[in-house]
C-alpha cells in the first residue's frame, strides 16, 4: 500500500487509498483530519505552537496554527469538508526532565492545537497526548482510522483511534 511519510514541520493530504504516516512525535504534535463522506484525509507534523510568537519565521508548516491552515487548504482542495472533518491529535510528550524550556513545549503544542481546531470549527474526536513517550502514527485513508505505535517500558504498544 502506498505510504506518504510526513517529515518534521510538514504535512500531506490524500484521498481514499493509502496511508499517511509520521514517525516519532515527541514534543511535536501530529494532527489528522478526515472526512468520511469524501474519504479525504490529511496529516500535519508540527514542531512549535504559534507562528506569531516566533516572528512567523521560516517554514509555516512547522507551526501548529499556520500549519493547520495549510493542511486545511489542501484538505478542502481535495474535497474535504471542514464541517464534517474529524480531527485526531497525538504527541506533545515531554521526554526529559532536564530539558528546560523543552518541558513545556509539548504541552503548549497540544493547547494551541486544541484552540486552533476549536477556532476553525473542527471537531476533535480522539487524542493521545502528553506523558513521557514518543508516538508514531498512520492514517488509513480508506477508513479514517489512525494506528498509533508507542514505546512503553521498552516495548512497542499499538492502539487504533
Amino acid at each position: 500500500m502506498r505510504e506518504i511519510r510526513v517529515g518534521i514541520g510538514d504535512y500531506a493530504v490524500g484521498r481514499e487509498r493509502g496511508i499517511i504516516s509520521t514517525y516519532g512525535l515527541g514534543s511535536c504534535v501530529g494532527i489528522t483530519l478526515y472526512d468520511r463522506a469524501t474519504k479525504v484525509g490529511g496529516l500535519l507534523h508540527a514542531l512549535l505552537p504559534e507562528a506569531s510568537r516566533y516572528g512567523n519565521r521560516g517554514n509555516p508548516a512547522k507551526y501548529v496554527d499556520t500549519g493547520l491552515q495549510l493542511l486545511l487548504k489542501d484538505f478542502k482542495r481535495l474535497g474535504g469538508n471542514p464541517v464534517r472533518a474529524e480531527a485526531k491529535l497525538f504527541g506533545g510528550a515531554h521526554m526529559f526532565r532536564g530539558a528546560g524550556e523543552g518541558l513545556t513545549i509539548g504541552r503548549k503544542n497540544v493547547e494551541v492545537a486544541k484552540r486552533e481546531l476549536r477556532r476553525l470549527g473542527i471537531r476533535l474526536v480522539a487524542e493521545d497526548t502528553g506523558g513521557r513517550g514518543g508516538r508514531t502514527i498512520y492514517l488509513d485513508l480508506s477508513t479514517g482510522k489512525v494506528r498509533m505505535r508507542k514505546v512503553c517500558n521498552g516495548r512497542v504498544i499499538e492502539r487504533v483511534y
Binding site: Y23, L48, K62, G133
Partner: peptide, 19 residues
C-alpha cells in the same frame, strides 16, 4: 524511543530561529 521523538524538543529550540 523513536529517534525523532528523542530529539524534537531540541529541534523545536533551534526551529524558533531556523529551518
Amino acid at each position: 524511543d523513536f529517534t525523532s521523538a528523542i530529539l524534537d524538543f531540541a529541534l523545536a529550540d533551534v526551529g524558533r530561529y531556523s529551518d
